[in-house]
Structure formats: C-alpha cells, structure tokens
Simulated scan of single mutants.
Amino acid sequence: MTRRRLKTGALLLALLALGGFLVVAAGLVPIAASSGHWRITAWFLHFAMRRAVATRTLGDELPPRDEPWLVLKGAGHYEGACRPCHGRPEEPLPPVPHAMTPHPPRLGPELATKWEPEELFYVVKHGIKFTGMPGWPSQQRDDEVLAMVAFLLELPDLDAEGYRRLVHGDAAPAFVADPLPELARRHCARCHGLDGCGRESPAFPRLAGQSREYLGAALHAFADGRRHSGIMRPIAAGLSGDQRDELAGYYSDQRGCPPSDERSAAAIARGGQIAERGVPAQRVPACVDCHGPGRPRRNAAMPDLAGQYADYLVLQLELFKARQRGGSAYAHLMTPVASPLDAEQIRDLAAYYASLKPAP
C-alpha cells in the first residue's frame, strides 16, 4: 500500500511539472511589468527575499562607520545612481519607478527599522534578482558599499536642504558656459569641485595639478574595470575617450589647493623618513622617486601625492595591500611596496604627504 501511494504521488508530481512546463512553453505566464504581481506572488517573492537576506547575513558584523566622510561619499553616489529610482527627501518618487514591478521603495523613515546595517550592506553589494536592483559594479570595493550604507542610515533623517548640502556642498557650482568646464560640472564637480580641490574631505581625492597622463590613465582604467570602483566606473564608462582625455587635461591645469590637513609632527617626521629612504629591512623602496616631492624627471603617469588627503592615501595603500585596488599600467608596482607596511607606517606616510604643499 505504501509503495502504491509513493508511485501515485510521484506520478502526480510529474504531471504537475509537465503541466507547469506546458503553461510556460505556451507563453501563458504573464511577464508584463505593466500587469503587476498577484498579491500572493508579491508576498512570496518579498518573503523569499527577506528570508534569504536574513540567512546570508547571520553572524555578519560591519566594520566601524565612524569616519565622518563616509556619509558624504555615499551621498555623492546616491544622487547619481540611486535617486532616479528611490527618490530624495521631500520630493515625489520619479515617474519611471511607478511603472516597474515591483516598485523600488522610497527609502524613508522605516528604512532603519526594517533592515539591519548588515542586511543593507548585503543588498547594496549583491542586488536582488527579479527586481531592478543591481549588484555593486565592483565587488572588490566593500569600502564603497560601506559608505553607501552609512549614507542610507542617515537618509531617513534628512530634509531637502540637508540632502542638498550633503550632495552638493554649501554652494552647488553654477552653470559654466565654456563646454569643458560644463563637462566637469556635470560629471565631476559634485565630488571633486570645478577647481579640483575636492570638498575639504577625504571622501573624494584632489585632482588639481595631477599630470594629464596620470588622470587620463586613471579614467580609462576606471572605465574598463582595471581600476576597481563601483562609484567611478559608471561615470568614466559613460564618457567617450576624448572626453576622459579632455577632463584629464582640464584638471591637470588647475592649481592652488593648500595642504589638505594637519597631523602630529612626530607622525609627519616618521612618514618623511619612509618617503625619502624607504624601509630597507622590509624591502620597501623610497616613495619620492615615483611620487615626489621633487624628482622632476619621474614618470608623469604616476600621481603626485603632495597635499592629498591623508585618509584617502591610507585607503589607497590598504587597497593595494589587500590587492583590491587595480589600476592602470603601473598599478601592479604598488602591491609589493604596500604589502610589507604595517598600519602605523601607512598612517605616517599619509600624514607626511598630506602635510606638503602641492608643487606649482
């Protein structure tokens, strides 16, 4: 009797599977976004998504999010990449998301109560299937995902003016008639400023005065994915090769940024010794031969570090050390240089270069 029931059950399952296949093969499954989901379908998909995220983040702990510039870094990317679907404070949701199935949610006050930070990190990094939510364009850059999570946790408390200040700063750049500055205004100024001196924050590097060769190579490397960044790759890939080269030339011509920040004299002195002499015991060469200051005959495709933000330099060295940065043709030279450095040496080097006045 038991064997007969098993056979009957197996036959019923096979018939159901065959019936389901025939329904799909006949094109009867509704896939039009305009028709929406049945309530049971919407509930099931949402339930499956929430349970999957909860299971995959069990035991996860995010690194500390105490750097004040993390929120600023996330805000700059949200405006360009997320706002078209999720909207911004005190404005109605854009019309296109209303025609999507499911609708992208407005990220309002309920955001922090419905999702744990670890869950937000997972969703931002990996995206969600069967929706318009993509994964992060560069899976190597958890630091960028963390910045976005930091901003999302602040977003429910922002009004329109607070949001604008985070995204654009105290004074959004005015329209510039000259086509090249207008290109810079549209794609770069929100984070790096029209003058290339940034937002007085290590969230974004200073571009002013870097060589045309270095900036052009960096933009091309971002565009084709050799330099990893989920923030910069979509921007660089949306520009033509000529536009990247024009922007590189524009920012290389900018000057006048003061030293970025001040660190302890002891840290600056220790960093200066490493920069000038290297660390022979750890097989770390001197930094000045490639990155200055001085050395007028050095390779123009390598960045000048004088006056760059210390926290930004720390992040780049950490990325090189973890083999997560990528870059243009010379980037591979940095991994064996950064790998032997410990955390204090990295901070000291960054403090030294941040204390320098950029070369004229």
Rank of each mutant, 00 (worst) to 15 (best):
D261N: 14
E262V: 15
D242G: 13
R255C: 07
S252Q: 09
G271T: 03
E246Q: 15
Y250G: 13
E246P: 09
P258L: 13
R226A: 13
A266E: 15
D242M: 13
G230L: 03
I231N: 11
S240E: 11
P234Y: 02
P258M: 07
G238Y: 04
S252W: 06
Q243L: 02
Q254L: 13
R227Q: 14
Q254M: 12
S240L: 09
L247S: 08
E262W: 12
S260I: 09
R244Y: 08
S240P: 09
R227D: 11
E246G: 14
R244V: 11
R244T: 09
M232V: 02
E246A: 15
H228K: 09
A269F: 07
P258A: 14
Q273F: 09
R270K: 12
D261C: 12
A266M: 10
S264I: 03
A237M: 00
E246Y: 12
D261E: 15
R270Q: 12
P234R: 04
C257Q: 03
D253E: 15
E262F: 13
M232Y: 05
R263D: 14
D245S: 13
R270P: 06
S260M: 09
G241W: 02
R227P: 10
G271E: 00
R270S: 12
G238H: 02
G249Q: 11
L247E: 05
C257K: 04
S240K: 10
G249V: 06
A265D: 09
H228C: 05
S252F: 05
I235Q: 04
C257L: 03
S229L: 06
R263P: 05
